[in-house]
Simulated assay, not measured.
Amino acid sequence: MSRLAPFAEQVVGIDPDPEAIVYARQRISPVSNVSLVVGDFLTMPVPSPEEPFSLVTCVATLHHMELRSAPPKCAKCSHLVASPHSWSSS
């Protein structure tokens, strides 16, 4: 996230593990445009069409999910939250 921050107005990190969020906060504390959220990306509300994310990326996530249902859910959520002029990666 600290590598994306210089190129973005705002960076949002989401992780279901509160300890991971604590660790991430320690690492990115000097970066002002990064916010961290404890939550599950697949169950969080989808942003409104007026305020979509420009980039959705998943790093080290799929191996934590049920393999038959996770990839389609990730693809669907990425498509819903990214703006029409953006891209997503995993």
Rank of each mutant, 00 (worst) to 15 (best):
A70W: 12
V46R: 11
Q26F: 11
V12T: 05
R27M: 03
F53G: 02
G13D: 04
P30F: 04
L67D: 03
F53C: 03
L62E: 06
V46M: 15
R3M: 13
G39W: 02
M1V: 07
P84W: 00
V59Q: 12
A24P: 09
P6N: 12
V81G: 10
E50D: 10
L4F: 04
A82T: 13
P18C: 15
P30N: 03
G13W: 01
P71M: 05
R68V: 01
A24Q: 06
K76N: 10
F53N: 03
E50Q: 11
I21D: 03
G39N: 12
L67P: 10
M1A: 06
A8I: 11
K73R: 05
P84F: 01
V81F: 11
V38T: 10
D15W: 04
M1L: 12
V56T: 13
C77V: 14
Q10M: 14
R25L: 02
P71R: 05
V12W: 00
E50G: 08
A5I: 00
L4Q: 04
A70R: 13
G39R: 04
L80C: 08
C77F: 09
S78P: 09
S83A: 13
S83N: 07
L67I: 02
C58T: 14
P49M: 07
S32E: 13
S86E: 02
P18M: 14
S54K: 00
V59N: 07
D17W: 15
D15G: 04
E50P: 03
N33W: 10
V34W: 07
F41Q: 02
S78Q: 12
A20F: 09
P49H: 04
S32N: 09
E51K: 10
V46I: 09
Q26N: 10
P45Q: 06
P49A: 05
V11F: 03
G39L: 11
V11N: 01
I21Q: 15
L80K: 09
V34S: 02
C74S: 15
N33V: 10
K76A: 15
L62C: 13
E50K: 09
S69E: 05
L55E: 08
S69Y: 00
P72W: 06
P16S: 15
P71Y: 12
A75S: 13
S2K: 11
E9V: 06
P6L: 13
E51H: 07
V11A: 11
G39Q: 03
T43K: 10
C74A: 11
L67G: 02
H85D: 08
S29P: 00
H79E: 15
V37F: 00
C58I: 13
P47M: 12
A70K: 07
P84D: 02
E19Q: 07
A60D: 11
E66F: 05
S35L: 01
L67M: 09
I14G: 01
L42W: 09
G13R: 05
P47F: 13
P6S: 15
P45C: 15
I14K: 06
D17P: 12
E66A: 05
P71A: 03
P52T: 07
V31A: 03
S48V: 08
V22D: 14
C58E: 15
L4E: 07
D40P: 01
V46P: 03
Q10S: 11
N33C: 00
C58F: 11
S29K: 06
T43D: 14
V81M: 09
A75L: 12
I21S: 08
F53E: 01
